[in-house]
Simulated assay, not measured.
Amino acid sequence: MSIIMNNFIKWNPIFPAPKDLYFVNLTDNGGAIDIHLAEMKDDRILILRFKGVMSYQVTDEGARSRSLYKDPSYRGLVVSDKSDYLNWFHRESQEMFLDWDLKHYSVGNINNIIDIISGDEVEVSWQAEV
């Protein structure tokens, strides 16, 4: 098993960057997912729409303590083109998607960590909370 050094950088899909996001819901639309997040002090929902999703996982934040301890940059909204999860995906797919410019997006929030492998740009919007 090879060891991959995670290469996460801050990802700011919207300015100003939201703080203290909590999970509202995730909708899987067959190849696209919508993640709805909210700020504690605001009445808006941040919607992150990922198209061309090849893989994703949702894990309780407490169950990821090893990853968070090992790599403190793995918090908040981050992206990587070289990560353990992306490496796992390429091994499992027998490297058939190596030339697709896939990225590992991570959406860390108060409730959980959502990891997404996608190559398409992410659509970001705010919606009034109903």
Rank of each mutant, 00 (worst) to 15 (best):
M1K: 08
S2Q: 14
I3P: 05
N7G: 10
F8M: 03
K10S: 07
K10E: 03
K10M: 01
K10P: 02
K10V: 00
W11F: 08
N12E: 05
N12I: 03
P13H: 07
P13W: 04
I14N: 02
I14H: 04
F15K: 14
F15E: 10
A17C: 12
P18F: 04
K19G: 07
K19V: 13
D20A: 15
L21T: 08
L21S: 06
L21A: 06
F23P: 01
F23N: 02
F23D: 02
D28W: 13
G31L: 08
A32E: 13
I33A: 11
D34F: 07
H36M: 15
L37C: 11
L37M: 13
A38I: 13
K41R: 12
D42H: 14
D42L: 12
D42Y: 10
D42Q: 11
D43W: 11
D43A: 11
D43P: 07
L46S: 09
L46C: 08
I47Y: 07
R49C: 06
K51F: 00
K51C: 04
K51R: 12
K51P: 00
K51Y: 01
G52F: 00
G52M: 00
V53N: 01
V53L: 03
V53C: 04
V53M: 03
M54K: 04
M54C: 12
S55Q: 11
Y56V: 12
Q57V: 07
Q57T: 13
V58Q: 05
V58D: 01
T59H: 09
G62R: 08
S65Q: 06
S65E: 11
S65T: 07
S65M: 05
R66E: 13
S67G: 05
L68Q: 09
L68R: 09
Y69S: 07
K70F: 12
D71N: 14
Y74W: 12
Y74N: 07
L77N: 04
L77G: 06
V78T: 06
V79W: 01
V79A: 03
S80C: 07
Y85R: 15
N87C: 13
W88D: 12
W88Q: 14
H90T: 09
R91M: 11
E92D: 14
E92I: 10
Q94M: 13
E95W: 12
M96R: 10
M96S: 04
M96H: 09
M96V: 13
F97K: 00
F97D: 03
D101E: 13
V107D: 02
V107L: 15
G108P: 03
N111H: 10
N112T: 01
I114K: 06
I114P: 02
I116M: 05
I116K: 06
I117N: 01
I117L: 09
I117R: 00
S118A: 11
E121A: 02
E121D: 15
V122H: 03
E123W: 06
E123L: 13
E123Q: 15
V124F: 09
V124S: 09
V124Q: 05
W126P: 11
Q127E: 14
E129H: 15
E129W: 10
E129G: 10
V130D: 07
